[in-house]
Design a protein around this nucleic acid. Structure first.
Length: 600
DNA sequence: TACCCCAGCGCG
DNA sequence: AAAGCGCGCTGGGGTA
């Protein structure tokens, strides 16, 4: 890999514009620091990117990167200081660092996502600091124009990072970067932590790029789909015809002409008045009841859900120019999984996936990591026998080993092991799984016991679970008191067990999230390398969707097979990155399709 | 009016 | 033949 010039370049908003501050790996100053006006940033970043391929260091990817992408500038790598800070703040590996011992700061606050402001320019949204960078200064004199660098200061810890008296030390990315490098260096696990932070930061780039590119969405197909199921789009405030008809049947059968089925209490009352024994209005519970009102009611619930969650209003709000652009939130879940904000991108029902279609001449490549979490557990535990069972279909392999009789049993038992099932079929099968795969089961059991004691557990790369909350500790304390009642002890035990199920799952879900980040990061690099030339991100094969253990690439049709190959290769990359020589396999199913609905 | 919580259901 | 993890969103229903 070509590596000239600075390894890291910090971007910092200063009173005079934006400073670019080159730093060595350990955070010490390198020559070449300069300050530019915000409007020049994309051009300057593009220059650096072409010449030095630095790792950009910034406070929030979601704040800097969208405007760069809008200016057709893609960066190869970055350090997202806020996401990194959160990991280092909580990791057991860095618990003795200055960073972890310092009081909460601005770096612990959630990212400030710039909200749409009709009067703000693109650059205000991305780079405006609110005080030091109002439009007047943006259009003013260039502080340090073009390629003329500001005179470099001598290398040392007190260089450009403190040169600007207007920079608040509490939010200075240079100081924060140095703190983080020190925490990593002192952790004794700089390899895995470094990989984790690189993967997390790559994820932040991908999240911004996926939002920029958008998920190809056919409003027309979506409308057809809705109309077939619900009837034509109704006037505002009215129900579609099919829904209205179903509701009429339900009301008639329950003899409740005014019934609002969206109100659980009202519905429960109506069902009881009709002589039914019900304690909830959940579809799953209602299914078992034999009454003529139930089938239309279940159908109504299903379609009503579609209408409210992904109906015409949803399309109007979230789909524009043939693209669905959700707000991805990397690290939004404690386990390290992504969350989304708005649009419900991680809950796209199968019902509407037919509306996800590629552009003309393009394909969607949909890939799914098969049985990811059990395989992650295999690697975490170093369970050779489970690795052996997982050479093909893992569940069939478990059956072949003689542990259980059917594939369905193997699946239920594995889920129970990872979630902490105690009763039912899953709980019943667990001992048999434990006999066949003692190493794997011992690992999740140990994580559960740690959680029950209120301790922290960590993923493969070093993301640690939070401590239980105040009410949890209170419950344990009350139960330990001499005057504790039986109810107190039961409550404490229930809390403890519950937290144990969380920590049990945390190590698996969290390590799976790390695997997925490595998979996507590797895939992103591989996709970029597929084509040369000046084509921008969305003119090349690019990621458009991510769903925990599933990715989607939008690519020109002639490259679809090549993309499929890279997707598989990237999965192998991820397995090696996390588990090294451990022979655990991560097969992926890949579908090249003209609609998301046609994948698996 | 604004906000919070719950029930229910979608996804992995 | 169904209880065990992690989420976000909607509509109802309550409170301030």
């Amino acid at each position: 890999m070509r590596q000239t010039g600075a390894v890291h370049v910090v971007l910092r908003r200063d009173s005079q514009g934006i400073s670019l501050i080159p730093l060595a790996d350990d955070g010490t100053d390198l020559p070449g620091s300069r300050t530019i006006v915000a409007a020049h940033l994309p051009g300057v970043v593009a220059e650096y990117e072409a010449e030095h391929r630095p790792r950009w260091v910034w406070d929030d990817t979601s704040r800097w990167y969208p405007a760069l992408l809008a200016a057709r500038v893609r960066v190869e790598r970055c350090v997202d200081l806020r996401l990194s800070h959160t990991i280092l703040r909580n990791s057991a590996l860095t618990r003795d660092s200055d960073l972890a011992r310092s009081p909460p700061s601005d770096w612990d606050a959630p990212a400030v996502v710039p909200r749409a402001d009709p009067d703000a320019t693109l650059f205000d949204l991305a780079f405006g600091s609110g005080t030091s960078l109002r439009p007047a200064s943006t259009v003013g004199a260039v502080v340090s124009p073009g390629a003329t660098p500001v005179a470099p200061s001598a290398a040392g810890s007190a260089g450009p990072g403190r040169a600007d008296p207007d920079v608040d030390p509490a939010t200075d990315p240079v100081l924060e970067f140095r703190n983080q490098r020190a925490a990593i260096a002192g952790s004794g696990a700089s390899g895995s932590l470094g990989l984790l932070l690189a993967a997390e930061s790559a994820g932040a780039l991908i999240a911004a790029e996926m939002r920029f590119a958008g998920l190809p969405w056919s409003v027309e197909r979506h409308n057809t789909l809705l109309t077939d199921l619900l009837g034509a789009r109704p006037a505002p405030g009215r129900r579609p015809a099919n829904l209205e008809a179903l509701l009429a049947r339900v009301r008639a059968e329950l003899d409740s002409p005014e019934l609002n089925p969206d109100s659980p209490t009202e519905l429960l009352r109506a069902l009881r008045r009709a002589g039914l024994v019900v304690t909830s209005t959940r579809s799953w519970d209602l299914q078992r009841i034999n009454h003529p009102a139930i089938p239309p009611l279940l159908e109504f619930k299903k379609l009503s859900r579609l209408l409210s969650a992904n109906g015409w209003h949803w399309v109007d709000t979230w789909v524009a120019d043939g693209r669905f652009r959700p707000d991805y939130v990397p690290g939004g879940v404690v386990t390290g999984r992504w969350a989304t904000s708005g649009g419900g991108a991680l809950q796209l029902p199968k019902q509407v996936r037919g509306a996800v279609v590629p552009d003309a001449g393009w394909k969607l490549i949909v890939a799914d990591a098969a049985q990811l979490e059990p395989r992650i557990l295999t690697g975490l535990a170093g369970d050779q026998r489970m690795a052996e069972a997982g050479r093909g279909d893992l569940y069939e392999g478990i059956v072949a080993s003689g542990a259980v009789a059917t594939r369905a049993e193997a699946k239920v038992a594995m889920l129970g092991a990872m979630y902490g099932a105690t009763t039912g079929e899953s709980g019943r099968l667990l001992p048999r799984l434990a006999r066949a795969y003692p190493k794997a089961l011992a690992l999740v059991e140990a994580a559960a016991r740690a959680g029950e004691r209120g301790e922290i557990v960590s993923t493969r790369l070093g993301r640690s679970s939070p401590l239980p909350g105040a009410d949890w500790r209170l419950a344990q304390r009350d139960a330990a008191d001499v005057g504790a009642s039986e109810a107190d002890r039961k409550r404490a035990l229930s809390h403890a067990r519950s937290w144990g199920r969380f920590t049990r799952n945390f190590i698996v879900q969290g390590t799976a999230a790390e695997w997925a980040l490595c998979w996507m990061g590797a895939l992103r690099n591989r996709l970029w390398a597929l084509e040369d030339g000046s084509a921008t991100l969305v003119e090349r094969p690019h990621l458009v969707f991510f769903l925990h253990d599933e990715v989607m690439v939008h690519a020109p049709a002639h490259l679809a097979e090549a993309v499929a190959t890279e997707v598989r290769a990237a999965a192998e990359d991820a397995g090696r990155l996390l588990f090294g020589a451990m022979p655990v396999s991560f097969p992926v199913t890949v579908a090249i399709v003209d609609s998301y609905a046609d994948a698996k």
